[in-house]
Amino acid sequence: MSKPIHIVLLIQETIFRKAISLLLRQGGLEVLDDFSNVNPLISKLQFSYQSVDLLLMDKSFFATLESEHLLSLYHIYPHLQICVIVPDGISQFEINKLFHKGASFLLNGSLSPEQFIVSLRTTYEKKIQSFHKNLPLRPSQPFGLYSFDENESISLSNREIEIIRLSCLEYNSKEIASLLYISKRTVDQHRLRIMERFGKKNFIGVVLYAVKHNILNVNEI
């Protein structure tokens, strides 16, 4: 028998949230709680549950989460997975942005109820197996599962990487400009473009991604 999956549901639209909650329960999954906005989420997750395995949310809710929220959640629940429900026709660029931000996997919201439950359960279990074995996830894809495409990944120039590295060392834009012999305005433009391309609301998110994906070597910072 499969181990129970403890799920917290995060969907802004009431009718959709209730429908997904009912679908999960009918599929034999345990829904601990559901939320329509981010404000009570972090504090309740910190103190109310002994175990949370999966956050299931829509794309709109995921967009409201800051990098600090995600770091806090992963600190509390190290094995936590985040599944984002996405619409039909989503572009590969948008898919990559969601993975860059921290989504574990994505599911198509237009799947049939049976396909949705099978995809959710199968992918979650394979992610957990890969985590414990310290292996990359390379499952056969269930219905409606989206994957990261490295050919569509966001590349950085040497100048952009250097700006991220100096930001890690706590240099501000004016100091970086002086070190690189460029204007402060140019540094600020680089930083804004990097945040836009990574889909981040602040530069902390950019730095976290760069370290996590070995764009920056921690020993060189």
Results as ranks from 00 to 15, higher is better:
residue 99 F to Y: 09
residue 102 G to D: 04
residue 103 A to V: 03
residue 106 L to Q: 12
residue 106 L to M: 14
residue 106 L to A: 14
residue 107 L to C: 06
residue 108 N to Y: 04
residue 108 N to F: 01
residue 109 G to C: 02
residue 109 G to S: 11
residue 110 S to Y: 14
residue 112 S to Y: 09
residue 112 S to D: 12
residue 113 P to N: 12
residue 114 E to L: 15
residue 114 E to H: 13
residue 116 F to A: 13
residue 117 I to G: 07
residue 118 V to G: 03
residue 118 V to M: 10
residue 119 S to H: 03
residue 120 L to D: 13
residue 123 T to Q: 13
residue 124 Y to D: 06
residue 126 K to P: 04
residue 129 Q to D: 12
residue 130 S to V: 11
residue 131 F to P: 04
residue 131 F to V: 03
residue 133 K to Q: 06
residue 135 L to D: 15
residue 136 P to I: 07
residue 138 R to L: 06
residue 141 Q to R: 04
residue 141 Q to H: 04
residue 141 Q to V: 03
residue 142 P to F: 00
residue 143 F to Y: 05
residue 143 F to Q: 04
residue 144 G to L: 00
residue 144 G to Y: 01
residue 144 G to A: 02
residue 145 L to Q: 09
residue 145 L to I: 03
residue 146 Y to L: 11
residue 146 Y to V: 01
residue 146 Y to C: 01
residue 146 Y to A: 06
residue 148 F to Y: 09
residue 149 D to L: 00
residue 151 N to Y: 08
residue 151 N to L: 06
residue 152 E to N: 13
residue 153 S to G: 15
residue 154 I to R: 00
residue 155 S to A: 08
residue 157 S to D: 15
residue 160 E to N: 05
residue 161 I to V: 15
residue 161 I to M: 14
residue 162 E to R: 14
residue 164 I to C: 08
residue 166 L to G: 10
residue 167 S to Y: 14
residue 170 E to K: 11
residue 171 Y to S: 06
residue 171 Y to K: 09
residue 171 Y to M: 12
residue 172 N to K: 09
residue 172 N to G: 13
residue 173 S to K: 05
residue 174 K to W: 09
residue 174 K to Q: 10
residue 175 E to G: 01
residue 176 I to L: 01
residue 178 S to K: 02
residue 179 L to M: 10
residue 179 L to C: 07
residue 180 L to Q: 08
residue 181 Y to G: 07
residue 182 I to A: 01
residue 182 I to N: 07
residue 183 S to V: 00
residue 184 K to I: 08
residue 186 T to F: 08
residue 186 T to K: 13
residue 188 D to C: 10
residue 189 Q to T: 10
